[in-house]
Design a protein around this nucleic acid. Structure first.
Length: 726
DNA sequence: AACACCGCGTTTTTT
DNA sequence: ACGCGGTGTT
């Protein structure tokens, strides 16, 4: 035994963490509360296995959900061990499944050059299938069909295993699924859920292969286990076999993805499926103040179905949780900006602040306030790099060069930039392709041979065909980066986007340049026998869609949904829109289990905060173009009064006392009772500059003041507007 | 082929 | 309100 390593490894662990890291070689279920050091425990356990039990990196499989988590895991392990761990399988479920399929494409009955479809590609293909079946898209929305297909695959079901019986609707979806699957198989396409199902079947149908991997992986460690779906759990069980030791780390209270198939039940099922599972709870929180933690604990305690866990902290009590009842959504936003300014004044940084919301639509009003007050911010979420239209166009050319039968790629760029191949031509192509069971590419050759189209259409098509063929030929000797550059120029894409002189067009050109940059950085997976570097790059791109934003502002306030906040922490957190109907969200439903998931979401949001937590709601809010009267969320009532501090005391709402016309400017009026600034007073505002007081709404702590600035007339909350009389 | 207009839906997101 | 996709107009 290496004592020095073992002590330094376990030095900073608390008793529960120590118990996990040094547990004997059993199956482990670690119920790790928010901020309890779960990733650290996973990393230390791996290091412990390697240093104390002589486990080779080769024998370890470590699974996460996101690429980000996977790369962080790898870095942290390498940091502890101080050497690279190339042969350890650390990755996402999808990434590892993809690796298995690449390595064993023959056994998986896939073409060697199979390509990965992202959900956008998948939806296009599903739409195509629905059209081909002559189904009404209104009645059979492609989105729903796509959802159906993925749900079935996640349950491990192939079309022939779905018993539609007398249900005609189910039968229709089943047929769409069957046709979709047939097309994927014949054109070598694999969507995300297919990666999982196919690799599961690969193991199921190839006992020698399964034995090989069962023999290899002696330790399987899983992060965020509460987020696993049915097929992922089956996949893990299959790989584990009878000998591998499993360590599942998760938190039932942070299960917020059941709507996309995650089965929190897997936590309990694990303890039943495997004998002698040792369950350890990590309940000491190192993140939040005790006040924040008590508030969060009280909320989550309202859930009935819990495995039981109570987070505690040795940390300081900290400030009370502040609750602000805003007049409306704009007031809510203004309040938040005001409080962040206060934070900054006290030496805080913008990047320490996070504004969380239930739905993306809420960000707009907040953004407007941030812009108004010149506060830099960064939104997490939205379109990711490789999902941008211009990038997908460029990739479609590359895909077509790799595989001429990729109909999705063909359709995407056959007329981008426009080259005289219109809808009429395309629909002839599609019909002919279907009749003859050919890819669109082969159909073009067939159509030209049989003179099935007008001369003009055929010459345009012939031109396109030779364009692609010539690009493919020119590119054989080029590097990946040179290939991309060549294709971008020769395809006319760059020229096409350069014509757009607007901001948007400029950004697109920049993105295309960034794509070239990405190709130069690309390193293929060493475990996979390379087909071509280009093919490897295309798979990589589908599996890892890239950061949301290329330009990462350093000291900027973070804006994101509650869902994307999971796993993160910030000293200062604003939980916004705590209103019935919005959070808990109406669309999520009123059934107990749905309400419990919303409550878990609230718990996740609250436990992101380290030092200071603000809860806000608006009494009226614009929703879908309508001003709605909102009621405070039930989650607010679930927080003990002792943890809370109401910023604006709840009083009866006063209507505007006087609505002044902008032209009315009385001179030197004295301040009204309860108002520091009199009507007509000149005031100075930190952001808007000089202005004149025009009117009031309410009084005392929740008074709002109407001021005419050079830039326009605004309503501000006196208490936070930071006004100075001049 | 580019642009304007209409109607629809509108929670959350990763791979 | 807003953005999308589909249709119709120039």
């Amino acid at each position: 035994m290496n004592t020095s390593v073992s002590t330094s490894l376990t030095d900073h662990l608390n008793p529960a963490q120590y118990e996990v890291v040094t547990a004997s070689l059993n199956h482990l279920l670690v119920l790790a509360g928010a901020g309890s050091g779960k990733t650290s425990v996973l990393v230390h356990r791996i290091a412990w296995l390697m240093t104390q039990h002589q486990v080779s990196p080769f024998e370890i499989l470590s699974v996460t959900f996101t690429n980000k988590a996977a790369s962080e895991m790898r870095h942290r392990i390498e940091h502890i061990l101080q050497f690279p761990i190339q042969h350890m399988w650390v990755g996402t479920f999808h990434g590892l499944a993809h690796r298995l399929l690449r390595k064993h494409w023959q056994e998986a009955k896939l073409p060697q050059a199979f390509q990965v479809l992202d959900s956008d590609d998948q939806q296009r293909l599903v739409r195509r299938v629905i059209k081909n079946l002559n189904l009404d898209e209104e009645r059979w929305p492609p989105r729903k069909a796509q959802w159906f297909i993925n749900a079935k695959k996640e349950e491990g079901l192939r079309p022939d295993k779905i018993m539609s019986g007398k249900d005609p609707s189910l039968e229709t979806y089943r047929r769409v699924y069957a046709d979709y699957e047939a097309i994927c198989q014949s054109s070598g396409l694999v969507d995300f859920s297919e990666l999982l199902l196919r690799s599961y079947e690969l193991l199921e149908n190839n006992p020698e292969l399964l034995m090989h991997y069962q023999d290899r992986f002696k330790h399987i460690l899983v992060d965020e286990f509460q987020d696993t779906n049915w097929i992922q759990y089956q996949w893990l069980k299959k790989l584990a076999g009878n000998s591998a030791k499993l360590m599942m780390v998760g938190d039932d209270d942070q299960s917020i993805y059941s709507w996309r198939g995650a089965k929190v039940e897997n936590l309990q099922r694990f303890t039943r499926d495997f004998s002698s599972v040792q369950t350890i709870r990590l309940e000491q929180n190192y993140r939040s103040t005790s006040t924040i933690l008590n508030a969060a604990n009280a909320v989550i305690a309202y859930n009935e179905n819990r495995m039981g866990k109570n987070l505690w902290t040795q940390g300081e009590k900290g400030e009370l949780v502040s609750l602000y009842a805003a007049f409306n959504d704009r007031d809510e936003a203004r309040f938040i900006v005001g409080q962040i300014n206060l934070w900054l004044k006290n030496g805080g940084k913008r990047e320490q602040a996070a504004i969380l919301y239930r739905s993306n639509a809420q960000s707009r009003v907040i953004e407007e306030a941030l812009i108004q007050f010149n506060m830099p911010y960064r939104i997490h979420g939205g379109l990711r790099f490789f999902e941008r239209a211009e990038i997908k166009d460029a990739l479609a050319y590359l895909r077509l060069i790799c595989n001429r039968d990729d109909d999705g790629a063909f359709e995407r760029i056959v007329n981008v930039p426009t080259r005289g191949i219109g809808d009429t031509t395309l629909s002839v192509l599609r019909d002919t392709a279907r009749e003859n069971q050919l890819s669109l590419w082969k159909t073009v050759q067939y159509v030209i041979e049989h003179q099935r189209l007008s001369g003009r259409a055929m010459s345009a098509l012939a031109h396109f065909i030779s364009l692609i063929d010539e690009m493919a030929k020119a590119v054989t000797e080029l590097s990946l980066q040179e290939t991309t550059e060549h294709v971008l120029i020769k395809s006319g894409l760059v020229a096409h986007y350069q014509e757009d002189r607007s901001e948007k067009g400029l950004a697109r050109i920049e993105n295309l340049e960034e794509l070239i940059n990405a190709t130069s950085q690309f390193k293929p997976d060493i475990e996979i026998v390379p087909t071509s570097l280009l093919a490897a790059f295309l798979s990589h791109v589908a599996l890892e869609a890239g950061e949301h934003q290329a330009d990462q502002l350093s000291d900027a306030v973070h804006l994101m949904t509650l869902h994307s906040a999971k796993g993160l922490e910030f000293p200062l957190v604003f939980l916004t829109g705590l209103e019935e109907g919005l959070f808990p969200h109406n669309m999520s439903g009123q059934e107990p289990h749905q309400l419990e998931e919303e409550r878990r979401l609230c718990y996740v949001g609250m436990t992101r905060a380290m030092k200071k937590l603000y809860l806000t709601y608006a009494e009226t809010r614009y929703l879908r173009g309508r001003e709605m009267n909102q009621k405070a969320s039930r989650f607010i009532r679930e927080i003990p009064k002792a943890c809370l501090q109401e910023v604006r005391p709840k009083t009866t709402i006063s209507r505007p006392v006087s609505v002044m016309s902008a032209s009315y400017q009385p001179k030197n009026q004295t301040a009204q009772p309860g108002h520091e600034f009199g009507l007509g007073n000149h005031v100075q505002h930190p952001a808007f500059g000089e202005g004149i007081v025009l009117g009031y709404e309410g009084s005392d702590a929740h008074a709002r003041i109407q001021i005419k600035f050079k830039t326009g007339t605004k309503w501000l909350v006196v208490a936070y507007a930071n006004l100075r009389k001049i």
